[in-house]
């Protein structure tokens, strides 16, 4: 009888130990259902589940010029503006691509800016199958978050187990100190070069 009680106690203790070990070592539920990354490089077409995306160009600037309600505004930042132009297509059905995140080399994540308000070329991008569309994602980032960064693009902000394009930004030229090689003093979002009509890249 004593052996039986002892045995049960051993089983109980090992169950507790195992449960605790699993609790501290196993991934969190949010990580288990996190978006599934699809890796790619700049200028490659990355195929996520509901859309295809190709990163064409990254421009860095110290200020952004934009037209809002007929008024010209210049948006400054203590860091840098990164204007990312992408080419988007839906795979099977018309959908929207709404979520862009700049992930720095150490894993810091910068959500796309919301300072620009509503613009046609800013997210959410409505995309259709077979039709290419140019879409911008604009970020405000510290200059030390550029080398080794990657761009995350997803259809929605909270989309468990949906695909997320993860595009490595290794193709961005940087100087020895990690600063981007080319920084414009001001980037005009409404300038003609930023305004190629829908469908052209």
């Amino acid at each position: 009888m004593r052996i039986r009680i002892l045995g049960n106690l051993v089983i109980l203790a090992s169950t507790v130990a195992l449960s605790y070990g699993m609790q501290v070592s196993k991934p969190h539920y949010a990580d288990l259902t996190a978006p599934i990354p699809v890796d790619g490089a700049m200028r490659d077409t990355v195929r996520a589940r509901s859309f295809d995306v190709r990163l064409d160009k990254v421009v860095f600037a110290r200020a952004l010029k934009t037209n809002q309600f007929g008024q010209e505004r210049s948006l400054t930042t203590s860091g840098l503006w990164a204007v990312v132009s992408t080419n988007l297509t839906a795979t099977a059905a018309s959908t929207t691509v709404a979520e862009g995140t700049w992930q720095g080399p150490t894993g810091l994540r910068y959500h796309q800016t919301e300072r620009l308000g509503y613009r046609q070329d800013m997210p959410p991008h409505g995309v259709d199958p077979g039709l290419e569309k140019r879409g911008l994602f604009v970020f405000e980032i510290p200059p030390d978050q550029i080398r080794g960064a990657s761009l995350l693009i997803a259809a929605r902000q909270f989309a468990p187990l949906d695909a997320q394009a993860r595009i490595s930004l290794d193709g961005v030229p940087t100087s020895a100190d990690g600063q981007p090689a080319d920084v414009l003093p001001e980037f005009d979002l409404d300038a003609p070069q930023a305004h190629t009509p829908q469908g052209k890249s």
């Binding site: 099977a92 059905a93 018309s94 409505g126 259709d128 199958p129 077979g130």
Partner: peptide, 8 residues
């Protein structure tokens, strides 16, 4: 091919 377009 089964692709779908919504109004634009």
């Amino acid at each position: 091919a089964g692709r779908r377009w919504l109004p634009d």
